[in-house]
Nucleic acid binder design. Structure first.
Lengths: 108, 108
DNA sequence: GGCTTATGTACCTTGACTGTTACGTAACGA
DNA sequence: TCGTTACGTAACAGTCAAGGTACATAAGCC
């Protein structure tokens, strides 16, 4: 959990993950998205790989990276423990809106 | 987004957030949960505060910390862009189960 | 006014992280 | 086979973050 959050706590890696959500890409394609030199991208990809967020397949001299959603699902699961905290707030808001609306309707 | 993920990418702060999800606590109560010295906890709490994950109220010489769910909601929203990636997989799994294990050949 | 309790800030050290350049490796293609 | 393409690792410098100790602040208590 902490490993995945650490891996995502970086704008460069977030950019890579965002891109990979739309489908696989080669290391070169991914590197083109970032304003840093290639070795830096390689290390970012390694961090994502070690966090289980991406997987690699070789295609001749190319490396095809793809997103592994499992760690993201783990975050989603962890987050679900807190979801009630803001859904309660939203429910209250919705109730407020509904109440205001009905009051207006009965008033008019 | 990156700020919140960075704040959460630390086991100590994750512990604090987990605790605060069950209700407010004083800095002292929170410090007792971590195996580090008090000033370290103060700094962790500051990181959480600057990420908008907690808020503080003074009560005489005590500081009462409470969880602010909004940043967590932001992560949930960000995550929703990826949710289809594993829900598709789960749907396929459910379909597979519903269909029964009669014919299996070119799957995956 | 002192003394204690509760908590934060200042400062320092150490270790990890990010980016760079230089180099290594592996596969394709003329 | 030799050059090119596509990636990665190695080594290094600068920055950042986490922990510790010492000190500051602030409010209650006697």
């Amino acid at each position: 959990m902490e490993t995945v959050l650490s891996a995502l706590a970086d704008q460069s890696r977030l950019t890579l993950v965002d891109r990979l959500a739309r489908g696989p890409a080669t290391a070169g394609e991914l590197a083109a998205l970032l304003p840093i030199a290639r070795p830096g991208v390689s290390r970012h990809l390694r961090v994502l790989r070690e966090a289980g967020l991406v997987e690699v397949h070789r295609d001749a001299q190319r490396r095809i990276y793809g997103l592994r959603p499992q760690p993201l699902e783990a975050i989603d699961t962890w987050l679900s423990r807190y979801r009630a905290l803001w859904e309660k707030r939203l429910d209250a808001l919705h109730a407020e809106i509904a109440r205001g609306k009905s009051e207006r309707e009965t008033a008019e």
